[in-house]
Computed example of a mutant assay.
Amino acid sequence: MTSTIELRTFHSFEPARQHLLDVYADVRADLLHLPNYAVSAFAERLDRHSEEPGWVAVLAYEHGNPIGYAYANTVDSEDRWWKRVAPNPPAEYTDRHAVALKEIGVRIPWRGTGAARRIHDALLADRDEPYVTLMVNPAAGDGKVHRLYEIWGYEDIGRSRPSAASPVLTVMIRAVR
């Protein structure tokens, strides 16, 4: 399936917003009943994140229909991203700007096709930061999502609970290149 996928990068939020919401609702359909995963909660986070420095999104399309996405922004040592990580991450990661991969998702028919990796790599292709970090629910996919990130080169560096409604997440990091 990945041979017909078109990747589009968005540095401006509005053209991407509705497609991000639509794909998210489909990707997270089985979790939408949980407060932290509700589309309204995602929309609030998305709107807030889009105003943060270095925001960018990559959407994948097949035949003009969005099938996957990822978005990220830049975080510095004072960002709340790092303030919520326990134990404190090494200064090696926090003393410079990093890319925070906030969300990535692919609709079910395209999972296991390499589409997520293509989206991920396109998102990082033009980044200047030395590291990329993400948070993953260790229970997602019965641990398969966490293992996938390990295959992509990410390593665990701590835990975080970004909000009271959020599960405890595993914080991971790797070099951008």
Score class of each variant (00 low, 15 high):
163 S>T: 14
122 A>L: 12
126 D>N: 12
118 R>E: 04
19 H>S: 13
145 V>Y: 00
122 A>W: 04
149 Y>M: 09
124 L>S: 10
125 A>D: 10
108 I>C: 04
55 W>F: 14
36 N>H: 10
57 A>D: 05
28 R>L: 04
72 A>P: 00
53 P>Q: 15
171 V>H: 00
40 S>A: 08
61 Y>D: 05
15 P>G: 05
97 H>I: 01
55 W>E: 05
14 E>C: 07
72 A>Q: 03
145 V>E: 00
103 E>N: 06
172 M>N: 01
61 Y>I: 13
54 G>E: 04
10 F>K: 11
57 A>N: 03
70 A>T: 09
51 E>T: 07
48 R>C: 07
47 D>R: 12
79 D>G: 09
8 R>P: 00
35 P>W: 10
31 L>C: 02
104 I>K: 04
26 D>I: 14
141 G>T: 04
59 L>F: 00
48 R>L: 08
60 A>G: 08
144 K>G: 02
52 E>R: 13
149 Y>W: 07
74 T>R: 12
68 G>E: 00
164 A>R: 13
8 R>I: 08
86 A>S: 13
148 L>P: 01
28 R>S: 07
162 P>T: 15
5 I>N: 06
135 M>R: 08
173 I>G: 01
117 R>V: 02
161 R>H: 10
130 P>E: 15
83 K>G: 03
78 E>C: 08
123 L>D: 05
115 A>E: 03
151 I>R: 15
4 T>W: 15
138 P>H: 11
93 Y>G: 03
131 Y>K: 02
78 E>S: 14
94 T>W: 08
63 H>P: 01
99 V>T: 09
5 I>L: 11
137 N>R: 08
46 L>N: 13
133 T>R: 13
118 R>H: 03
49 H>G: 04
119 I>E: 02
124 L>Q: 10
37 Y>V: 00
76 D>L: 05
99 V>M: 05
150 E>K: 12
67 I>W: 02
138 P>C: 12
123 L>V: 14
17 R>N: 01
47 D>A: 14
165 A>M: 02
128 D>I: 07
148 L>M: 10
115 A>M: 04
47 D>E: 13
29 A>I: 11
37 Y>P: 00
57 A>P: 02
3 S>V: 09
113 T>Q: 03
59 L>Q: 07
100 A>P: 01
38 A>G: 04
37 Y>L: 05
41 A>Y: 10
123 L>Y: 05
21 L>K: 12
117 R>F: 04
76 D>A: 13
49 H>P: 00
152 W>Q: 06
71 Y>A: 06
131 Y>Q: 02
92 E>Y: 11
175 A>F: 13
97 H>W: 10
